[in-house]
Nucleic acid binder design. Structure first.
Ligand SMILES: [Zn+2]
Ligand SMILES: [Zn+2]
Ligand SMILES: [Zn+2]
Ligand SMILES: [Zn+2]
Lengths: 164, 164
DNA sequence: CAGAGATTGGTATAATATAACAGCACGTCA
DNA sequence: TGACGTGCTGTTATATTATACCAATCTCTG
C-alpha cells in the first residue's frame, strides 16, 4: 500500500493522517476476521496508538498513553498486545530502536526493510522483492538458509537532508 | 578476511579457534597503534572474551567472565570497553540479539551484514558490496540517504539445516 | 450449563543500558 | 619539579526494556 495521502513513500507533514489511522484499523479488522483472530479493545487501542504517527513508539510510551485512558495498565498488557499484533502482521518491531511501528502492508505476508530518518525519526517500510532476493541469494551462496530478515537503514529522509 | 582455518565462511567445530583469537587480538593492536587508540588491558580482555567463539555474547555474560578474573567488574566497565571497541571497528553489536561479536574485517571501514544461525547461534559477518549498493540504490530512489545499515539475517547455517 | 481455551489483571523480577561523580594514571608544559 | 589537563577506571545509583508467573475473567462450543 502506498501512503494514503500522496504518491510519495515518505509522508509529509500535511498529509491526512487520520486517514492513515482509519485505514490501518479497518485493515486490521479485515485481517482478524479473515484469520479468525480477535481484535479486542486493548489490542485495537494499542494498534491505534502505534499509528498515532509514522514514528516508532516504545512499549512504555504506549503504556503511559494507555494509562492516560483511565485504566492503569501494566507492562505485560502492552507487551501482550504488541505480541499479538506482531503475530497478526499488523505491527513491526524496529530492533535498532526497541520500538514499534504499524505495518504498511498488513494485507499480505511479507518480509520488509525499514528506512529510519535519524533526524525526524519517520520510518518508512519498504517491501522490496529485489532486496529480499539478493539477500537470500548471497546467503544461499554460503549455504545459509534465511528465515527472517531484519533490515534497518538509518539516514536522512527527503525532508531532512540538505539536498532538499 | 576469510575464516582463518578453512576457506569456508562458516567456521566448523574443528577449526583452530585459538588462531582466530590471536589473529583478532593482533589486528586490534595494529588498528589501535595506527589510529592512536589505547587498547588497555580491560579493553583487550573484553575483546578476547568477545572472541571466545563465533557466537554473539551479551554484555552481562562478559561481565560475569570479567568478574571471574578476580576483579569484580560493574556494568559501566564492560559497556565502556564495548563502546570503545565498537568505535574502533573491532566489535559489532547485533541489534536483534542485544549482543556483540568480534569484527571479522577490522582492518578497514565497512558496512556489513550478519548471518545468524538460530540453531547453533553461530554468526558470520558478510561484507557484500553488492547488497550495500542495492540497499543504497533502493533507498535513494525514494530520496533517502543511508548512513548506517543494520542487516541481520536469521536462519540455518550449513551445519544446521536438513540438506546437510 | 459445563468445560476448554483464550484473554486479561496484577505482582514481581529479569535483562539490558546509562548517568553521574570521584579518583587515578600519565603526559605536557611552566 | 610540580601544576594541570585529559582520558581511563571504579563505584553507586538508576533508567529502560522485557518476561515469568499465577489468578481471575471472558468467550466459544457442545
Ligand atoms: Zn509490514
Ligand atoms: Zn526526516
Ligand atoms: Zn574461530
Ligand atoms: Zn566487521
Amino acid at each position: 500500500m502506498k501512503h494514503a495521502a500522496t504518491s510519495e513513500a515518505f509522508p509529509d507533514a500535511a498529509h491526512d493522517h487520520a486517514e492513515c489511522i482509519s485505514t490501518a484499523l479497518a485493515a486490521a479488522e479485515d485481517t482478524c476476521r479473515r484469520e479468525g483472530l480477535r481484535l479486542t479493545p486493548i489490542r485495537r487501542r494499542v494498534l491505534e496508538l502505534v499509528w498515532q504517527n509514522h514514528r516508532p513508539v516504545g512499549a512504555y510510551d504506549l503504556l503511559d498513553q494507555l494509562s492516560r485512558d483511565g485504566k492503569r495498565a501494566m507492562p505485560p498488557t502492552v507487551y501482550r498486545a504488541l505480541e499479538f499484533l506482531q503475530g497478526a502482521g499488523l505491527v513491526h518491531r524496529i530492533a535498532t530502536l526497541n520500538a514499534f511501528v504499524g505495518c504498511s502492508h498488513p494485507d499480505h505476508a511479507h518480509q520488509c526493510q525499514f528506512l529510519i530518518c535519524s533526524d525526524c525519526r519517520t520510518v518508512v517500510e519498504l517491501e522490496s522483492e529485489n532486496i529480499g532476493r539478493s539477500l537470500k541469494r548471497e546467503a544461499a551462496a554460503l549455504g545459509f538458509q534465511v528465515r527472517e530478515q531484519s533490515v534497518e537503514l538509518t539516514g536522512l529522509c527527503p525532508e531532512c537532508h540538505p539536498a532538499h
